[in-house]
Every structure is written in C-alpha cells, then in structure tokens.
Simulated scan of single mutants.
Amino acid sequence: MSVTPTPQTVVITGASAGIGRAIARLYGARGARVVLIARGRAGLDAAAREVASLGGTPLVQVADTADAGQVEAAADAGERAFGPVDVWINCAFTSVFAPFDEITAEEYDRVTHVTYLGFVNGTRTALKRMLPRDHGTIVQVGSALGERSIPLQSAYCGAKHAVNGFTSSLRTELLHRGSRVRVTVAQMPAVNTPQFSWVLSRLPRHPQPVPPIYQPEVAARGVVHAADHPGRKQYYIGATTLATIWANRLAPALLDRYLARTGFDSQQTDLRPPSGESNLFEPVDGAEGSDHGAHGIFDDMAHARSLEAVLARHPAAVAGALTLAFAATAKAALSRRGRVPCG
C-alpha cells in the first residue's frame, strides 16, 4: 500500500514580492505548507492566495526580519499550524542606491539589519528548531555582489559579503558536530524584481539591475533546487554570476577599473527616478490593492531561462555528456593518427 508523503513545511522570508514570491509559488505547486514572512500585508495576502490556488497551504506572518523577536514569533506560529520546519529560506532584504558618502548612518544600519542580520535572525531561529531534531535545510539567497562588490550599492554588497562569511563559519560548526542540518547559499544574478521601483535611490535616473537580467522564476528554481540538494556549499544561478565571480578571482584590479568606468551608467535607465516612497523603513504595499507581485518593470529585458542554471540542476547528465564528448574527440584524434581503426 502506497503512503502519501507528508507535505514539506517551508518558511520563506521576503515572501511578499520578487524572488521570495516566486519561491512561494513553486512550493505551493508542490503542495507544501508555506509560512510567508514579510512586512507588507497586501503582498503577503496575495502570495497566500497564489500558494493556495496552486495546491499549497499558506500561513501569513507579518514580521520584520531585523527584529529577532518577531522572527521567533513567526516561526512559533508556523510550527503550531504546520509542525516542524523542514526548509527555511532567508530572502528578505532592502537596499540603498547611492554613493557611500550620500548614505546616512541610519540608512546604512537599516540595510545591514535587514539584509545581513535578518539572515542571522532567521538562521538562528531555524537552528533552534532543527538542531534538536537533527533535520532541516537552510538556504541563504545570496548574490554575486556578495563576492564582487559594485559601485552605488555599498550597504547591500557589504551585507551580502557578511552573509557569505557567517554562513561559511556556521557550515564548519555543523560539520564539527556531525549534524545532518544543512546550510547552502544560492548566489543570484541580476533579477527583475520590484525592488528597483521602491528602493531608496539618490541616483539621477531610475535604477536597474545590471544586464543581463533574469526573471524571478529563474532565481526561484535555483533556490528550490538548492533546498532539495543542500550538500553543495553554494550554487551559482545564471552564467553572469559565475562569470563575475571568476573575473573577480582572476583579475580583480582590472575589474575594479572596469566597474569604475561602467558601473554607474549600467545601473540606471533613461527613466526618471522613482517618485513614490521607498521601502527602507516601512513597507510600500500597505494600501489596499498595492500588491507588487514577483516581477519588476524590466520584463522586456529579462531572460526566462538560464542554461547555466539548468546545467547546475543536472550535473550527472552534464558530466556524462562531457565524458562522451571527450571520448569521441579523443577517438577521432587517435584515428587521425592511425592508432584506432575507423568503422
């Protein structure tokens, strides 16, 4: 007699929009029980409707991840409703687009508290529940900018670097314990999310992700794959992420000069800067009907697929294909030398 598998219990921070929203949809389609955490009620309620319509069971928790107590309360509510957490995904963040000397101390603190310490709070809360059970997976939604900083995003880049650092330290501690709790990082490329329309910006023109740009669904598929296969230290989503990281390792000084020359214009469109309120200190979807969804305003520029991400999800197939290709190439080369009979 077949046994119906128990649905996963998944917690997603930053679930009201962007990548977090796209991740919630994927887990909804799996029939998962999804705890949705963010500050904005309108976006969370819309995400919950999507999860339910796809076959999942949502639970909305309005919380600021910069507040450890609020994160704990949300996790308690999730486990009371759904039972033990299987997967915890840290995705909430905020940012400021401006030269470093134009960012106030209060603004810098806020970005750091959400984009770095929010991940610390989420990870601590998850481990409090997972370690005694010796079960669970934590996925940090990182960024290529966590390994290669760019101009105009010093607060965000610093926070993402910090996420990489503390996660690496935690991973070694889990290995020392022999724990079966897993933690991995999914490093993101430029993604078409609503953040570029609600971020605090002091740029003369509307901010944009540095092209090439990917749709949130590409990022979400990478995160869910990382959660399903957490044995790897990190995953690079999008070819540009991998290219950026390797360029920084091979020629960092050259990349510094390149970004100094191109990094300002490549992060701005020809549009006027956003005229609405930013979401740095307060959510911008508080008004009725002000849900922003997963996508930003760059649909016409964004790629819905990433070959590199597909290959990363199927390493065995890739290795097999490369082995066959290498064998065929070697055989052909030897045949040309007269060492292997053809036919």
Score class of each variant (00 low, 15 high):
residue 289 G to K: 01
residue 250 L to N: 04
residue 280 L to F: 09
residue 77 A to T: 07
residue 109 D to R: 10
residue 54 L to I: 06
residue 7 P to F: 08
residue 155 A to C: 13
residue 66 A to G: 13
residue 98 A to N: 11
residue 28 G to L: 12
residue 259 L to H: 11
residue 39 R to Q: 04
residue 17 A to K: 14
residue 154 S to V: 09
residue 168 S to I: 11
residue 163 V to M: 01
residue 46 A to T: 04
residue 280 L to T: 02
residue 43 G to C: 02
residue 185 V to H: 13
residue 108 Y to K: 01
residue 144 A to T: 06
residue 252 P to T: 14
residue 213 I to E: 03
residue 35 V to Q: 03
residue 48 A to E: 00
residue 169 S to G: 12
residue 325 A to V: 09
residue 75 A to S: 10
residue 76 D to K: 15
residue 115 T to M: 05
residue 196 F to Y: 10
residue 163 V to G: 00
residue 287 A to T: 13
residue 34 V to N: 03
residue 161 H to M: 13
residue 153 Q to E: 14
residue 60 V to C: 01
residue 222 G to S: 00
residue 170 L to R: 00
residue 80 R to S: 09
residue 244 T to L: 06
residue 276 G to C: 03
residue 32 A to W: 02
residue 172 T to L: 10
residue 205 R to C: 07
residue 14 G to M: 00
residue 210 V to L: 12
residue 138 I to N: 05
residue 85 V to W: 03
residue 247 A to E: 10
residue 149 S to E: 13
residue 330 A to T: 14
residue 158 G to M: 04
residue 261 R to S: 15
residue 30 R to S: 11
residue 310 V to F: 12
residue 94 T to N: 15
residue 22 A to N: 14
residue 253 A to Y: 13
residue 81 A to L: 10
residue 161 H to Y: 14
residue 270 D to S: 12
residue 282 E to R: 15
residue 189 P to G: 00
residue 308 E to W: 15
residue 297 I to N: 09
residue 342 C to L: 15
residue 202 R to P: 01
residue 202 R to H: 11
residue 218 V to W: 03
residue 86 D to S: 10
residue 251 A to T: 13
residue 67 D to W: 12
residue 178 G to S: 05
residue 329 T to R: 15
residue 333 A to Y: 15
residue 10 V to I: 08
residue 130 M to Y: 08
residue 186 A to R: 04
residue 11 V to I: 03
residue 109 D to A: 15
residue 83 G to P: 07
residue 7 P to Q: 04
residue 165 G to M: 05
residue 204 P to C: 07
residue 8 Q to F: 09
residue 208 Q to D: 12
residue 240 T to P: 10
residue 112 T to R: 06
residue 63 A to Q: 01
residue 296 G to H: 05
residue 145 L to D: 08
residue 179 S to W: 07
residue 105 A to W: 06
residue 158 G to E: 06
residue 140 Q to D: 08
residue 120 V to T: 06
residue 328 A to M: 08
residue 285 D to N: 08
residue 81 A to T: 01
residue 73 A to G: 11
residue 50 E to A: 09
residue 342 C to A: 14
residue 184 T to M: 01
residue 141 V to C: 07
residue 142 G to Y: 08
residue 329 T to Y: 15
residue 52 A to P: 09
residue 271 L to N: 15
residue 262 T to G: 13
residue 275 S to F: 10
residue 140 Q to K: 04
residue 2 S to R: 12
residue 111 V to W: 01
residue 310 V to Y: 10
residue 250 L to K: 02
residue 143 S to H: 01
residue 342 C to Y: 08
residue 64 D to R: 02
residue 159 A to Y: 02
residue 15 A to N: 03
residue 23 I to L: 02
residue 123 T to F: 05
residue 33 R to I: 04
